[in-house]
Design a protein around this nucleic acid. Structure first.
Length: 551
RNA sequence: UGCCUGAUGGUGUAACGGUAGCACAACUGUUUUUGGUGCAGUUUGUCUAGGUUCGAAUCCUGGUCAGGCAACCA
């Protein structure tokens, strides 16, 4: 822990609490509802909650906020656990709000007995109407004055299944004129005759968020309950419940959720993308989900680094996607194995190469002195990138063209002597001669060239499929843009191409990170097999030449 | 018309009454067998009007702007 780094406002609070002796140690929690897959916004919360505990010597619970059976599934529980683990965090306890249903029910009874809760027979519409508006106080109804005995009997009957969905609700009796809408007799329990993924059909009444979350925190003795800004108005109710029940005083603190350019962070909208098949699945590499990012090739380290860099504050924010890309490039640059892959090939024939073939050696990672080298076969017929040849080169073009010289990476310097075109006028074959004394590592040619090209020996090349991704949306602020967010979907977010790769890739591990030289960072897709290698582009390399060309 | 948050370069985030710093982005230059990486550097900022103070991004008052608050969702 560096003393240089300043504390964010939550760390500030915790260190003060600890210094004041308010707690012996801290306990945080990460409380997802298992109704979808985790996304990068959750990663921010995960890194915060687990990071806080780690930093201050505490622990973190993983708690599933499963109080709405109609939206939640075990599939989501499993994916959430896998994602948190993959990110590199361990919870001390795995908890479920549904484990507290008995206790929560008892709490509700306590409130009824204190005259602080009542059963209301009104419809949802009537209740909404009676709540008034932010500027007009709400009005009560006759149900508000039911006796404690009647409320108790009615609530017990609710639990016993005597009523149907929507017939009755349990509400707290607080203040119908409160300037805080959430204090205007909020709903505590509703009837839902639905199957719960964990409690099955044991219950037909389920607590609302406001009656489950704070109490769950309290039951677990969470010291610092950290959530996002939209829960600020709920805090008064959170505190009210804890106070009236006289239970462990957990405290809620709020920070601004993550927003990022060119993507969305709403579970509802992400679900829509999946259901309407704008993407293939929750773990589609274009999705901002943890599982999508994992499949795309992001490393947990880079995501943690990103979450560290964006900081924690209370103001709304929208983070440049390029910061995430910076983080993943920085990590991958250090660990990725370099390989050569040609995507849009054109044939290069070395006319004066009189050997059949030879094995050259190329470093696996110039950033890693221990990284070693690999064998790369070389022969007189190679594939190079079509974009690396220009019939009439411009001034700053450092690649191949008539009479121009370049180095073939880890091989020889060559000079273009001639080229052939097909009937359509496309360059088909390039003829070049090589300088035997310019061999990499033992170059005595004295020739200096500006450009170095990647290449693949044609007869040794193996076919691979590349999935190259672009941003999912074509506006920066998708959530803030007018109209339907789906109008801004980038129709070209996925490009799949066939390419030629050097043979080493066939024997590489499925989990290895690659940099295809001059192309970008790639990671094998979950569908990849030895017979059909499929790679996903995690992120491109920075491309100064592309920028230059745009000018 | 109410209540609650917040406002520092293009984007984030620090500075806790005492030199507005850091990162990303952008732009130079340099190194380089990846137009990658590395290295050096440049540009750009305290919402506004008053007040307190020797001194204000920071404290006070008014204003402006942005976001949130009424779901039998979390």
């Amino acid at each position: 822990m560096s003393e240089e780094k300043s504390l964010n406002f939550i760390e500030e609070i915790i260190s003060q609490d600890l210094a004041a002796g308010k707690y012996a140690s801290i306990l945080t929690r990460f409380p997802p509802e298992p109704n979808g897959y985790l996304h990068i916004g959750h990663a921010k919360s995960i890194c915060l909650n687990f990071g806080l505990a780690k930093r201050f010597g505490g622990a973190t619970n993983l708690r599933f906020d499963d109080t709405n059976p109609t939206k939640e599934e075990t599939e989501y529980v499993d994916s959430i656990k896998a994602d948190v683990k993959w990110l590199g965090f361990d919870w001390i306890k795995e908890c479920y709000a549904s484990d507290y249903f008995d206790q929560l029910y008892a709490f509700a009874l306590q409130l009824i007995e204190k005259g602080l809760a009542y059963v209301d027979d009104s419809s949802a519409e009537e209740i909404a109407l009676q709540k008034g508006t932010p500027t007009v106080p709400g009005t009560g109804n006759a149900f508000r004055n039911r006796s404690i005995e009647e409320n108790k009997a009615l609530f017990e009957a609710m639990k016993a299944g005597a009523f149907e969905d929507g017939d009755k609700v349990l509400r707290a009796k607080i203040d119908l004129a409160s300037p805080n809408m959430h204090m205007r007799d909020p709903l505590l329990y509703r009837i839902k005759k639905a199957h719960h993924h964990r409690t099955g059909d044991a219950w037909c009444i389920y607590p609302m968020y406001d009656f489950a979350h704070g109490q769950s925190d309290s039951i677990e003795h969470i010291t610092h309950s950290v959530c996002t800004l939209e829960f600020i108005p709920h805090r008064a109710l959170y505190d009210w419940c804890i106070e009236q029940l006289g239970i462990f005083p957990s405290h809620q603190y709020e920070f601004a959720r993550l927003n990022m350019t060119y993507t969305i962070m709403s579970k509802r909208k992400l679900l829509q993308l999946v259901q309407e098949e704008h993407v293939q699945s929750w773990d589609d590499p274009r999705m901002p989900t943890i599982s999508g990012m994992r499949r795309r090739g992001y490393t947990p380290e880079s995501i943690r680094d990103f979450c560290e860099r964006i900081g924690i504050a209370k103001r709304e924010n929208i983070i440049d996607f390029s910061l995430l890309e910076f983080c993943v490039r920085e990590h991958l640059n250090k660990i990725a194995q370099r390989r050569m892959v040609v995507t849009n090939p054109v044939k290069l024939v070395i006319t004066n190469y009189d050997k059949v073939e030879e094995i050259l050696h190329s470093e696996n990672n110039p950033e890693d002195p221990e990284g070693g080298v690999r064998d790369v076969p070389f022969s007189n017929e190679l594939w190079i990138e079509r974009a690396d040849f220009m019939e009439e080169p411009t001034k700053k073009y450092f690649r191949l063209g008539p009479d121009l010289m370049v180095r073939l990476k880890s091989a020889y310097i060559i000079k273009c002597d001639s080229f052939e075109k097909d009937a359509a006028g496309n360059v088909q074959t390039i003829h070049a001669s090589y300088f035997p004394e310019s061999k990499s590592g033992s170059d005595t040619s004295g020739i200096h060239v500006k450009g170095t090209l990647h290449w693949v020996s044609a007869k040794h090349a193996v076919p691979v499929v590349l999935n190259e991704y672009d941003r999912l949306f074509n506006v920066e602020d998708v959530a803030g843009a007018e109209g339907d967010f789906k109008d801004y979907i980038n129709p070209n977010s996925l490009t799949t191409t066939n390419a030629w790769a050097e043979p080493a890739l066939v024997n590489d591990s499925l989990d290895a990170r690659f940099q295809f030289i001059r192309k970008g960072y790639f990671y094998q897709d979950t569908t990849s097999t030895k017979d059909k290698l499929v790679f996903n582009r995690t992120v491109t390399l920075k491309d100064a030449w592309a920028k230059e060309q745009k000018k």
